[in-house]
Design a protein around this nucleic acid. Sequence first.
RNA 1: GCCUGAGUGGCGGAAUGGUAGACGCUGGGGAUUUAAAAUCCCUUGCCAGUAAUGGCGUGAGGGUUCGAGUCCCUCCUCAGGUACCA
Length: 859
Amino acid sequence: MATPSKDYDFSAIEPKWQDYWAQNTTYEARDFVDNPTFYVLDMFPYPSGAGLHIGHPEGYTASDALKRFKKAQGYNVLHPMGWDAFGLPTEQYAIKTGTHPAITTKQNVANFTKQLTDLGFTYDWNREVNTTDPSYFKWTQWIFMQLFKKGLAYVEEKPVWFCPDLGTVLANEEVNMTAEGPRSDRGDFPVERRPIRQWVLRITEYAERLIAGLKDLDWPDSTKRLQENWIGRSEGGEITFDIAGHEAQLTVFTTRPDTLYGATYMVIAPEHPLVAKLTTPEQQAAIAAYQEKAKSKSDLERAELSKEKSGFWTGAYAINPVNGKEIPIWVADYVLMTYGTGAIMAVPAHDTRDFEFAKEFDLEIIQVIDDNDSAEKDAEGGLKEAYTGPGSLINSGEQSGKDSESAKKAVIEQLAADNRGKATVNFKLRDWLFSRQRYWGEPFPIVWVNEADYAKADDSLKSVERPVTCEMDGETWFALALPETELPLELPAVESYTPSPDGQSPLSKAGDWLHVYVDPKTGETSTEAKDDWLRGMRETNTMPQWAGSCWYYLRYIDPKNTDALIDPAKEKYWGTPDLYIGGAEHAVLHLLYARFWHHVLYDLGVVSDPEPFKKLFHQGIILGEDGEKMSKSRGNVVNPDVIIKDYGADALRLYLMFLGPLEAMKPWNTKGIEGIARFLRKVWRLIVAEDGSVHTKIGATDTLDPETARVLHATIKKVTEDYTALGFNTAISQMMICINQLSKAEALPKQAVESFLQLLAPLAPHQAEELWERLGHSSSIALSGWPKHDESKLVQDTVKIIFQVNGKYRGDAELPADVSKDDAIAAAKAHERVQSFVDGKTIKKEIYVPGKIVNIVAI
RNA sequence: GCCUGAGUGGCGGAAUGGUAGACGCUGGGGAUUUAAAAUCCCUUGCCAGUAAUGGCGUGAGGGUUCGAGUCCCUCCUCAGGUACCA
C-alpha cells in the first residue's frame, strides 16, 4: 500500500492520507468517552466566491496542529468547521444574476471544503454547520424568540445608516468615516441617514455583566481593553436642574459631580425634546436653523467636521441646585442626544470641551478644584486650559476643602436628600440594531397583528412585560412570536432580490408568504382564513449576519438535534471551547454579540456557564511580499492553491507557522518556503534510501550517542512546550536543529526516528504518516501517542562557563557540570584573557551564576 | 487627543535579567556534476586588523543592576483601534 516512490512526492502522498483520515474517521470527536475533552474552535469563514485567502490557513493550521497534538496526547478532541453563509456578497450576486443565494452558497461551500481538505485539515465533517440551513437557523430563530419573550427585543423607527448602492441599512459599526463622508465598510459606498423600522436588541441591559465577565477571561489584554472601551462604563451621577420660569426640569449625567459649583452654563443637544419649549422667541430663528443643520449631520460627521465649537443660547436659565445660581442654557452639537441624558452641566474650568466652548462664547469660568499650581495661568490668574485632574475643592460652599474623590459622593448625597440627584452608571454601548432590509438572512419568527387581535392571543406568544409595537400606515401593530412548532420559518421564493426603493426588504413583495392567519391559542399559521384565527402580517426584515455566528460553537456539540438547540448532557460533556482562534477584526462585534447571547442562554438555563470563550487567540495578518496588505488591486495576493501545487500542503502549513509568532503581522516571502521544502526533503532522506526502501542506518543500533540523544530529548521537551503555547515558529526551529543532528548520525535506533516523526506530525501530517507507514506501522501515527522526554538525557557532564570581566565576555571553559563556585572562579582567574583584563586592578566582587557565568568586577 | 501593540543584521525572526542575532532566507566562496537541478562544506551585524584580537552594536536619552534587547522613567517613529462619551 506504500507509495513506491523513492522521492518525496507530496502530490501523491497528500491525497492518499487525506482519504485515509476521512475513511478511518481518525479525527472524529466522540461524545461521552472517558478521555479528557479538548474543544478547539476556529472562527468559521464566510464562503465567498473568491475561495480561501492565505489568512484562513494561518489560523486553521494552528488549530489543526493543536488538534493533532492534543489527540496524540490522548484527548478526545472536538475540532469542527462550518459556514457563516448568510451575507451580502452572495445576495449581491443574486441581484446581478438571478441565481438563488442558496445555490451560490452550495457551490462556494463545496469549493471551500475542497480547499480545506487539500490543506490536510481534518475537521469532523459530521458536525458541519451552515447558518443558512433551515435546520440550523431554526435555532437562531428560536433564540430570537427567547429574547423577544424576555423583553430584550423591541422595534423602533430610527434614523439609521442607509446605503443606496447596497440597498440596505447598515449598523454604526459597518460605516466608516472617510474624507469623502460616511461610507459603507463593505464596498466603500456612500451612505446616508434614513428613518426605518428596525428591530433592536437590548444588549445594554447586559452591559454591566459584559464588562464584569471580561475579568476572568484568558484573552489578549488589548482585546479585553477594546471591549471595555466599547462598552464604556462610567460612574457618575444624575443631577436635576430647575429651569427659571418653567415647570420642566433638566437632568444631566456627569462623572464629576464634585465640580457642580463650577457649572456656569448648561448645554442640551439639538435633538433634545425640551429645546423648543425652552427657546425664547428672540432666539427661535437661530435655534431652529441650528437644529436643522445638526439634523443633516450624524454623530459621526459631527465628530469628523472640525472640532470648532458651535451653538446658540436658548434664552433660558437653569438654576444650580447647590447654590441657586442662574446659568444660561445653550444648544450645541458637541452634546450628543445618544449619550447620557442629552444634556450636560458645563464646567469650563475642569472640562476641555466646555473650556473651549466658554472661550468661544465668552462664558464665565469658575475654578472649583485646586490645581496646586500645576495648570498654566494667564496674567490675572485665570486658567489657560481646563484643569481635569484631581484636587481639593475651592469656591464650593460647604464642600470646599474636600478632595475631589470624596466630594463626588458628598455632592450626590447632598442632592439625593433633596431628590435632585443620584449616583448612576452610564454606558457608551448602545442597543444592538438587529435587522436588515435584505433577502439573504434569517426571517424573524414574528407576525404583526392589530391591537384587538393581540388581546385575543395567548400570552405564550407575547413579550408580556414589554409588548412590542410599531406604527405602519397610521395604525399600531403588535408583535406575536411564532411558536417553536412553526420553526424554522423559511425564506419564500421571490422574483427579485432587490430591495424596494424605499429601503424595505425584498420579502415585503412576497405576498403569499407575507399575509398569514394565526391561531390565537397555539400560534400555528396558515395561508387560509380560519374561524377565530387572527389576520396577520409577517415581519419582512431579516436578521443581520451576526445572528448565525453568535452561537454556532454550541451547535457543533449537537449539530443534528431536532428537538433542542443542544442536548444538556452533551453541553455539559464538551463545555465551551477550550481555545478560540480567529482574527482580531472580530475583537468587538462578533465577540461581544456572542457573549451577550451566551449570557442570555445562560439565564435561560440552556448553557451552564455564562461566558462562551474562556481562552482566545488572535492570529496575525499575513502581508504581501511587498510588506503591504494583500489586495487584488496591489497584485500581491498569495493563493494557497498555487503554493500547494508547487510545494505541497505540508510545506505550506510549516511555512505559515514558521513565518513568525502566530499573533504577529508578518510579510509573506516565497523564497522562504524553499527552506521549509529543504527541511522536509531532509526528513524524507533520513528515512527513505535512494532505492526507496527504508534507510539501512535506521534500526542499525539500539542506542544513540549522548549528544544526539541530548538534542532529541531537548527537542521533545521544547516542541511539547511550544505546541502547548502555540509557539510553532520556535518549535519548527528546534525540529530543524534536531534533523540536522540526526542526519549526522551513522546509525539510529528506529525509535528515535519515530519520536521525531511524532513531533513533526501535527504540522506536516501527510509526510509523517507516510514515513510512519514505511517504517512498518499499519495504523495511523495519530494513534501512536506522544513522545516523552527523558530529563536524564539532557544532563551534560560538562558545561560551558562564560567568563566575564565587568560584565563583558572575556573567555569561556568547559567545566564539570557540578563545579563549585570557588573552582569556577579559580578557572576564570586562570584564564589568560581574563588575567589580562584583571591585571593591575583590584577585584571588587566575584559573581558565579551556577552553570552559566563567572563575572569578575575589577577596577 | 485617548487606548493597545511594536521598533533587534540585507530580510523573516531567536533570546527564564546572564556570550545578542538561534533557526531559516538572501549574499559570497568551494565540492559534486558533461551540464543543470538536487545535495554537501565553509562564510555572512558594523568598524579596525593578514590573524590572534579589540572596539561598537537591540529606535533616542537617562536610571536600577556585578550584568539590561529584557526592569523603571522621559521622548521619537510605526501599526491597529477609537474619538466632542460629559
